[in-house]
């Protein structure tokens, strides 16, 4: 059983890719993002790399609607989603995870996944009170799919555990599984492999490749360039809030400007990995 099968029920892709231009965001006068512009090609895995303080997480926060930008525009396919509220962006099929796992601690692992589908019949008070059959049927369908995902993501055994009681690695997996449960067209992963042991890094890499195979566009923030080289098709380099370069990893390594100005050591270290 693979992740591809588990997400087979998602609607057909109508969205091309994500595109942003001229994003800026300042905190107390300091520009965290300063003109970032790039595209995320559809059906590919894109890496967003750059040193600490390059504004990677801020960009993800802006793209996902967790933060508003000071200027610039964001397009999801043909739809402009600039400064939409987070929930509307999520309903367009753009889902994100968080750098530090943010589990819904009081909910069980299964409930964390069940909370993910954005629109549910049972979120309406009228349906809850007067159409209990409909609500129950949808709940069972969602629960079946959630349990399949939990099986894939090796969390089945912990389905009835409150999420705050999971280990760090398990929380990382839950973070991804929950986003997948929401049937994303485009998934923004904020350092999905940070702080986990090497064995789990491999596993998570496989999950991400599986997602790509099932047609999900992925963009991930990642520091480990070995992993980026291995699984990502496209790389966006961010520095001081601007897009420094884009292209494949090998293109970037031959881009002397990038290497000498800024990435030399890191990339060579990554290649040696």
């Amino acid at each position: 059983m693979s992740a591809a099968n588990a997400t087979a029920g998602s609607p057909p892709l109508t969205v091309d890719a994500l595109r942003c231009e001229g994003l800026t965001k300042a905190f107390q006068g300091v520009h965290a993002v300063n003109g970032a512009a790039f595209e995320v090609p559809e059906g590919k895995i894109t890496a967003l790399i750059g040193p600490n303080g390059a504004g990677k997480t801020t960009v993800v926060n802006i793209l996902s609607g967790a933060m508003s930008s000071d200027s610039g525009r964001v397009f999801l396919g043909d739809t402009e989603i600039t400064n939409w509220p987070a929930y509307k962006i999520a309903r367009q099929g753009l889902l994100r995870t968080f750098q530090l796992s943010r589990e819904l601690g009081g909910l069980t692992v299964l409930e964390n996944l069940l909370a993910a589908p954005a629109v549910q019949a049972g979120d309406s008070l009228v349906n809850v009170l007067f159409r209990p059959g409909l609500v129950r049927r949808q709940e069972r369908e969602n629960a079946e799919r959630a349990l399949e995902l939990l099986e894939v993501y090796r969390l089945y055994r912990h389905r009835d555990t409150r999420a705050r009681e999971l280990s760090g690695g398990q929380k990382k997996l839950l973070e991804i599984a929950r986003a997948v449960m929401a049937s994303p067209k485009l998934l923004l992963l904020d350092e999905p492999m940070a702080g986990v042991n090497p064995a789990l890094i491999e596993v998570i890499g496989e999950y991400i490749l599986d997602l790509k195979r099932s047609g999900v566009t992925v963009m991930m923030i990642e520091h480990n360039l070995g992993i980026v080289e291995k699984i990502c098709d496209h790389v966006v380099v961010l520095a001081e809030g601007r897009t420094l370069a884009t292209g494949s990893m090998s293109e970037l390594r031959s881009n002397t400007a990038v290497v000498s100005a800024y990435l030399g050591e890191v990339i060579n270290a990554g290649a040696a990995h």
């Binding site: 996902s64 609607g65 967790a66 509220p85 987070a86 929930y87 999520a90 309903r91 889902l95 994100r96 968080f98 943010r102 589990e103 819904l104 601690g105 009081g106 909910l107 909370a115 993910a116 589908p117 954005a118 629109v119 979120d123 929950r178 929401a182």
Partner: peptide
């Protein structure tokens, strides 16, 4: 209650 940012990111108004 547990994390309103996550709930928003999952499409909850």
């Amino acid at each position: 209650r547990d994390d309103s940012t996550v709930a928003g990111a999952l499409g909850k108004d």
